[in-house]
Design a protein around this nucleic acid. Structure first.
Lengths: 339, 339
DNA sequence: ATGAAAGCGCTAACAC
DNA sequence: GTGTTAGCGCTTTCAT
């Protein structure tokens, strides 16, 4: 499997290897005839550029690193997809690393990216503290965090406007006539959840609604956990007409609990999610939700990173993306508002 | 952002850079004192090995390429997850490339992998013809195809035993008392689908059942397409008590069509899928299905590739993985077999 | 035990 | 328009 190098081509074409390099890189300082002749020969010999050798000199690998907790997660694989496509559109390729299960693996992943000389890194952090954890390496190369709000941290990031998303959701429920709205599943320790809960509380104040938040002590959102929490929560329903779940996963878990308890959605109780994961659009789920525009977030993250790479700047910046409401079938219009 | 090199460390430690190299690589020909001193200094200076430079000499990048049609697909992201984790366990990292949407992009992805000097490639091919399409580059480096049966092709592959899976499913339905079983969604041109359909037919012969196959002309399975096909198919039901769908996606699409047409599953008709995608385990879906053991397939693919890499062999081989039946709630036990 | 020198495949600066 | 040379950061002989 000895690969063909520029020298082999040079020998076959009876020119110096510099000339071959020029021919291949589209350098104008070369006659058309030789260029075409060389191109033809290298094609015949099955030559392929060794990017690694090129990177040594150019000090650019045209590679960007993507670190995600677990690619095996619909939300993240969707983000990853758009990151890959966007990066490729701009001539970059992706090294992927799962940071699961802990901060030490996340650190190793980052170390690896540095070692492979990637031109920059997009990180979907495990949690807020990832930022400090990775700082040592993140300071060595352009880095952009995706999907977590890292305000007050020394980092560039892209995040959805969680606060606004909650207000959007609450206003929607209010318009439908709901006045008794439970907020389900605020995960303590997560800034994302904190912001969403704050948005809920703000909306409650604005709309004159009594806030009621169910907190989670878990470290991750999942359908299963949402189900368990909902089972206990729904069994002593205290007159809520609607539930605003902190994430779609929680909402879907709650749906399952509701079914078990013979509570119909939306007839008995309306349900609103947050995130707009793929599942939510299934007719069998049909969850109305506040969407995180995943494609836009991914595209912006890559563009922000490319900007950093190409301008060699280490200044931090951030972008907060507008959420939007996706109407489906899990919220009911109350004929006369219950006061 | 000028990175620290081995030379910088050498200067700081007042030794030659060869000595530094030895200290870092754990070479025994060095005194403990100098090794420790150098390690400490390089640590302080924030040195990280430049894998690229190392790869130049070693002619190994410790990178493996993963080419998948679209990482934004639950089945593939699950496979990708296990591929990444397994590769990492053996000291390799992943370059990821989506081959969507066509063969030319798939070829570009492969070209790129060669250029980046990856040690080997795992490919989830778009279709059977991918194999010939990629041959030119695939012959240059160790390659393993994952998830598509490529018998009669000059390639190494890992695939589930589709034929056996169908027979497994049919025997299960038979045991439940079903005798009128439709096979829904055989995609023409796909070897996977062909094998599954053959398994169905074989089982029909063995069990004395009249085969009935609904073919699809589409080029991809999707919930939406399954839904459309099912709408027309279910509207003129001809006495089937069970439907064996070629994929879970098709099955889920069919579920949606059934709901629209007020056909209950499993009360009116039993439904069996194939693949065991994530969705199928949702209580709202609860689809009984023939599972592809994704983790095992991914692990075997990586191990097969590593074997090729480490033994420098270009001999092809294949492994056919055993499918298994996952019982959920979409199949009903018929009290007395309908003849 | 340590250092000097060569070289991996390529690009870029400088000759001619 | 083409060739020569140096060198990217590292590992690996081969000296000492």
């Amino acid at each position: 499997m000895g690969k063909i190098t520029i020298k082999d081509v040079a020998k076959a074409a009876n020119v110096s290897f510099t000339t071959v390099s020029r021919a291949l890189s589209g350098n104008p300082e070369i006659s058309k005839e030789t260029r075409e002749r060389i191109l033809k020969i290298s094609e015949e010999m099955g030559y392929t550029t060794n990017y690694i050798a090129r990177s040594m000199i150019k000090k650019k690998t045209e590679l960007i690193g993507l670190i995600v907790p677990s690619i095996d997660n619909p939300f993240m694989s969707e983000l990853a997809y758009y990151v890959e496509v966007t990066a490729r559109r701009f001539g970059y390729n992706l090294i992927l690393c799962n940071s699961y299960p802990d901060l030490s693996q996340e650190l190793k992943a980052m170390q690896l990216m540095v070692g492979h000389q990637v031109d920059g890194v997009v990180i979907i952090p495990q949690k807020r503290s990832s930022c400090g954890n990775l700082m040592k390496y993140a300071s060595l190369l352009p880095t952009v965090y995706l999907s977590e709000n890292l305000r007050d941290m020394d980092a560039s990031y892209i995040s959805v406007d969680n606060h606004k998303g909650s207000m959007l959701g609450m206003e929607y429920l209010y318009r439908l006539g709901h006045r008794k709205i439970m907020y389900f599943g605020c995960r303590v320790g997560s800034i994302t959840h904190q912001l969403r809960a704050e948005g809920y509380q703000q909306a409650c104040r604005n709309l004159g609604i009594e806030p009621n938040i169910v907190y989670f002590e878990s470290s991750a959102s999942s359908i299963e956990f949402g189900y368990e929490m909902a089972c206990s929560e729904l069994s002593h329903n205290s007159g809520f007409t609607a539930i605003f779940a902190s994430t779609d996963s929680n909402a879907i878990g709650l749906m399952q609990a509701a079914r078990k308890l013979n509570i119909r959605i939306p007839e008995d109780i309306s349900l609103l999610g947050f995130d707009n994961i793929r599942l939510s659009s299934l007719p069998q789920i049909d969850l109305t939700t506040v969407a995180q525009p995943k494609e836009e977030m991914a595209v912006r993250a890559v563009k922000m990173l490319l900007h950093k790479i190409e301008n060699g700047t280490s200044d931090n910046s951030f972008e907060i993306i507008e959420p939007s409401l996706i109407e489906r079938g899990s919220c009911r219009n109350l004929p006369s508002p219950v006061i």
